Computed example of a mutant assay.
Amino acid sequence: MYIKKLDKPSASSPFWEGVHDGIPIGLGYFAVAFSLGIICRSSGFSVFQGFLASLLNNTSAGEFAAITLIGAGAGYLEIALVTLIANARYLLMSCALSQRFSPDTPFYHRLAVAFAVTDELFGIAIARAGALQPMYYYGAMCMAIPGWSLGTAMGIIAGSQLPGRLVSALGVALYGMFLAVIIPPAKKSRIILTVVLVSFAASFIANYWDVLAALSGGTRTIILTVAISALAAILHPVK
């Protein structure tokens, strides 16, 4: 009987490319999650509870908001509504990401990828040329999710012992990841560069414009994303 020998994953396979691209994201998440761990500890979470919460909730703003409300003794409905609003932008990201898959991609792959749609993972996935391969996203997830959950656990254990300035400095790593996501495509396309600069300016104005400043950060992000991307699509449609 002939048994086909399975090929070992090569360093250039989509999965390992995802692992490679996900390493800086995981490291950034680990650093930022320290501050989340401090909040978890002050809200009465054990190390295991904080780890499990971050393992099952791959979101920064939403989890920060939820943990803070739990510490304040908020009700289930309030926590659910705030989390929904804070994470609403991922609805847009999921719509955009679903269009990058090949039409014959099975539903279970789409469902698994939807478990970890974050800003940074979305950024590296959407920037890849051609159809998005689920194995690439899985590779990035394998780095990002442990970084976030382990960072939270370590933050609960040691975060309260670190100087406040050091914890704040660790948070800068996340902004470095955002720059790493947007700079390469912006250097290749003046249209993307213009959209990025307009987004920066619009986000800054929205923080001080009374009409939008009263809204949550997630809601402002949705409004600006829809408005700016729609305008860019009208002015410079992709053939």
Rank of each mutant, 00 (worst) to 15 (best):
Y175D: 05
R220S: 11
A131N: 15
I70C: 01
V195W: 00
Y137C: 09
I192H: 00
Y136G: 04
A61T: 07
R190H: 14
L27F: 13
L179R: 02
G171Y: 02
K4P: 14
L170E: 00
L97K: 00
L52P: 05
P163H: 08
A116G: 03
P9S: 09
T68W: 10
V238F: 13
L193W: 13
V211W: 12
G171R: 01
S160I: 04
A140C: 07
G123I: 06
L166S: 03
T225A: 14
Q133S: 06
V167G: 04
S13R: 12
R41E: 15
I126V: 13
A96I: 04
N207V: 08
Y2M: 15
Q99H: 15
L166F: 05
A232N: 07
L166V: 05
L92I: 07
A96H: 05
A96W: 03
A201Q: 10
P14F: 08
L121P: 03
T105A: 12
Y90T: 01
Y2S: 15
F64N: 03
S94E: 07
A230I: 09
A65P: 01
G164T: 06
M154H: 07
L111M: 08
S229E: 06
R100V: 04
Q133V: 10
M93T: 08
A53Y: 11
Q133C: 12
A233I: 13
L56A: 14
I157L: 15
I85E: 03
Y208Q: 13
T118S: 10
R89W: 11
F200S: 04
N57I: 11
V82K: 02
G71R: 03
I234Q: 10
S54L: 14
A214G: 02
I156N: 04
K5M: 08
S12E: 15
K187P: 05
Y175A: 09
R41Q: 15
W209E: 15
L174S: 02
I79A: 01
F30Y: 03
A227S: 09
K187T: 12
V47Y: 00
P24D: 08
A227T: 04
K188N: 03
M143G: 01
T152N: 12
I79L: 05
K187S: 06
A144D: 07
V238M: 11
A131R: 15
